[in-house]
Amino acid sequence: LSQDQINEYKECFSLYDKQQRGKIKATDLMVAMRCLGASPTPGEVQRHLQTHGIDGNGELDFSTFLTIMHMQIKQE
């Protein structure tokens, strides 16, 4: 990932990090990914979360979000 991409991801991540705690809700993951041009299915989002041990009510930090985005873009 280039620095530009990382900055773009950070900007989008921040939109969903409403309390500015450095985390977004798992329920916002799909929308955040789509905001960056990825098109994950609900099943793919579920798999990404399970891979990282996050349940549907959990939260993920930016580095986890980056990893998930990277995996998603590689497979699209």
Rank of each mutant, 00 (worst) to 15 (best):
S14Q: 10
L36I: 05
S63A: 07
K74V: 02
Y16I: 05
D17M: 02
F13M: 01
E11T: 14
D55G: 15
S14A: 05
R21S: 12
Q19N: 09
P42G: 15
D4V: 06
I6G: 06
Y9E: 03
S39D: 09
K25N: 06
Y16A: 03
R34D: 10
R21Q: 09
G43R: 09
L36Y: 04
V45Q: 05
D17P: 00
Q5E: 02
L36D: 02
G37L: 04
A38C: 09
L36P: 02
L15H: 13
L15E: 13
Y16F: 11
I6L: 12
E44A: 02
D4F: 07
N57I: 02
C12R: 11
A26H: 04
L29H: 01
F62Q: 06
E11D: 13
D28I: 03
R21F: 02
D4H: 07
L66C: 14
F13S: 00
T27P: 09
I6D: 07
S2F: 10
T67A: 11
A26E: 03
V45L: 03
Y16P: 01
K18E: 08
M33H: 00
S63V: 14
C12E: 04
R21A: 07
N7G: 06
L60C: 10
Y9C: 14
E8W: 07
K10N: 09
T67S: 03
C35Q: 12
L15M: 11
L29N: 00
A26F: 03
Q3H: 06
S63N: 09
L1Q: 04
D4I: 10
K25P: 11
K23D: 02
Q20F: 06
L60I: 11
D17N: 02
I73T: 13
D28T: 05
D28Q: 08
A26M: 03
N57T: 13
M71L: 12
Q19R: 08
L29Y: 01
L15C: 12
L66V: 12
Q20Y: 04
I68G: 00
E59S: 06
F13E: 00
M33R: 00
S14C: 06
G37S: 09
F62H: 02
L60S: 01
Y9V: 11
S39G: 12
V31F: 07
R21Y: 04
G56K: 15
L66R: 08
Y9G: 04
K25A: 11
Q5D: 09
A32P: 02
G43N: 14
K18M: 07
I24V: 07
N7A: 12
M71T: 05
L49T: 03
I24K: 00
F13L: 02
K23Y: 09
S14V: 05
G37E: 06
E11C: 06
A38N: 03
M69N: 05
Q20C: 13
R47V: 15
K25E: 13
S39I: 08
A32D: 00
I68M: 12
L60E: 00
Q19W: 05
K10A: 12
N7I: 14
V31P: 11
I6T: 09
C35E: 13
I68F: 07
E59Q: 12
L15G: 09
F13G: 00
G37A: 06
G22S: 05
T51A: 06
L36M: 08
E76G: 14
E11L: 07
G58L: 03
S14I: 05
S63E: 14
L36T: 11
C35T: 11
S63M: 09
S14M: 10
L66E: 13
M33G: 01
Y16D: 01
S14G: 05
C12K: 13
T67N: 03
G43W: 10
L60P: 00
A32E: 00
Y9R: 02
F65Y: 05
R34I: 11
C12D: 01
D4Q: 05
Q19P: 08
Q20E: 10
G58F: 04
N7W: 05
L15P: 01
Q19H: 15
G43Y: 14
K18F: 06
K25G: 11
I6K: 10
E8D: 13
Y16R: 03
L36G: 10
C35F: 12
G58Y: 01
R21L: 08
H48N: 07
